[in-house]
């Protein structure tokens, strides 16, 4: 009885499995699938799989992915108005440089959370809320990207958001932005 805690498990988990120890293997492989899709199909960078909440250090409901998209994935409509105004000011400032140039909107890409899911899953509001309660507004900066200067946090990012990545059995992945709260739609 007392020696039970000290006995070695018959099969030691692989190093990869150890980092995921709190989650089921199908959820681990799903996170890796989404990470792979983002990296190679959508050219995302700085991709990481998170198993523990950065807020509470508790295990997350399922492994989440974070990463940096090649361009901004979401611009809030109010921010877009500001960016357009600023771009207009800049264009007026150097009118001599390029007359016919269009508005150059500058929106730096931001790190995003990605929630990996499968199409045949059922979800509930409770579980969705648990995911949001466990994450920060912006994913924590990875150690590998320490050389890049810390961007000031976007003042427009006032609600949490995740990218809902839904994978079908044929490995198609679709992405939807989910905001935690009432966020007005973009003017597409």
């Amino acid at each position: 009885m007392t020696s039970l805690a000290h006995t070695k498990p018959a099969i030691a988990p692989a190093p990869l499995q150890q980092s995921f120890a709190s989650h089921l293997p199908q959820l681990q492989s799903l996170a890796i699938q989404i990470q792979h899709n983002l990296e190679h199909q959508h050219r995302w960078a700085d991709l990481h799989v998170h198993t523990h909440s950065p807020l509470t250090n508790e295990p997350l409901p399922r492994p989440l992915v974070s990463g940096l998209p090649p361009q901004r994935i979401y611009i809030h409509p109010d921010e877009q108005v500001e960016l357009l105004k600023e771009a207009d000011r800049r264009r007026k400032a150097d009118r001599t440089a390029a007359e016919g140039a269009g508005l150059q909107v500058k929106a730096e890409p931001e790190r995003e959370w990605i929630l990996p899911t499968r199409l045949n899953e059922k979800w509930t509001l409770r579980r969705l809320a648990e995911v949001f309660d466990a994450i920060t507004f912006v994913p924590p900066a990875p150690d590998t990207a320490a050389d890049t200067p810390d961007r000031p946090e976007n003042p427009w990012r006032t609600t949490k958001r995740v990218l809902l990545g839904t994978a079908d059995s044929d490995s198609t992945v679709v992405y939807y932005i989910v905001h935690d709260g009432v966020v007005k739609p973009r003017q597409n």
Partner: peptide
Amino acid sequence: TRAFSIEWAAL
């Protein structure tokens, strides 16, 4: 009351 707004990510 929790509400989640969902938009296409255009990826």
